[in-house]
């Protein structure tokens, strides 16, 4: 599905990712854990194609295409999705309007027909209900005045609407209380499928209690310093990052 090979990324003249290699197969759930400043968000933004993230070496292949050649919107049309750590507020644009514009843009790019208003509404309402998102929230401008939990649920709602093939969740757990965390995790678990892969980026182990990964990687200094199964997360929780960073050094 996604093959990252010896990736180097520079932001504002600083090298942040320094030779990261990661292969994610179809249907797999990978977790990347790392301390602050280890390059977690840089990795997710680079995969999503944010301007200003300069790839200085390495390659990323996604479904046999060179991901780095694609515009951000083209990546999405091909089934890539990034749930942001800090979803952006867009004043004046209602959540509903945004979702419809985005969904139809993706469908258009894939040569599919646009959803009509009635079908779209039905679809959104069903998905929103599963995530405990009220009608009122859908009518409000996107993310404007949303609480931290609402913003994250709105991100998961988008993910469930767009039905991506490769979903990247960047610190989706940050700022959530335990109940909100469970709602978000359930939303993600519902989407797990044999043809859908996940990359879950997090600082803490607790999200992984609810979304159980197949593989866990520890990121430090812009490269993966250790990989393992889900038990690696527990070990990390017990020992702390420092122990692993020292081992790797």
């Amino acid at each position: 599905m996604l093959n990252i090979n010896d990736l180097h990324v520079r932001v504002d003249d600083k090298d942040i990712i320094n030779g990261l290699t990661l292969n994610i197969g179809a249907g797999e759930v990978h977790a990347i854990m790392g301390p602050n400043g280890s390059g977690k968000s840089t990795l997710s933004y680079t995969l999503a194609g944010r301007p200003g993230y300069e790839v200085t070496a390495g390659s990323v292949t996604y479904q046999d295409a060179d991901l780095l050649d694609l515009m951000p919107e083209e990546r999405v049309a091909k089934g890539m999705f990034l749930a942001l750590q800090y979803p952006v507020e867009i004043p004046g644009v209602t959540t509903m309007m945004f979702l419809r514009t985005a969904l139809n843009a993706q469908r258009g790019a894939r040569g599919e027909e646009e959803l009509n208003a009635a079908d779209f509404l039905r679809l959104v309402r069903t998905k929103a209900k599963e995530l405990d998102i009220s009608e009122d929230m859908l009518k409000r401008p996107l993310n404007v005045g949303f609480s931290g939990g609402e913003k994250k649920r709105a991100e998961v709602l988008q993910m469930s609407l767009f039905e991506p093939k490769m979903a990247i969740l960047d610190e989706t757990d940050s700022g959530l209380d335990i109940d909100a965390l469970k709602v978000v995790a359930q939303g993600v678990n519902r989407l797990r499928a044999a043809d859908r892969s996940f990359l879950i980026i997090t600082h803490y182990q607790r999200l992984l209690d609810h979304i159980v990964p197949d593989f866990v990687h520890i990121l430090a200094g812009g490269r993966i310093i250790k990989s393992g199964g889900k038990e690696l997360a527990l070990e990390l929780e017990a020992k702390g990052y420092d122990a692993f960073v020292k081992d790797a050094a």
Partner: peptide, 14 residues
């Protein structure tokens, strides 16, 4: 730029 990127990261052309 943030808004623009966010919309593009949802598949909306520039």
């Amino acid at each position: 730029e943030d808004q623009l990127f966010y919309a593009r990261a949802r598949g909306i052309g520039e």
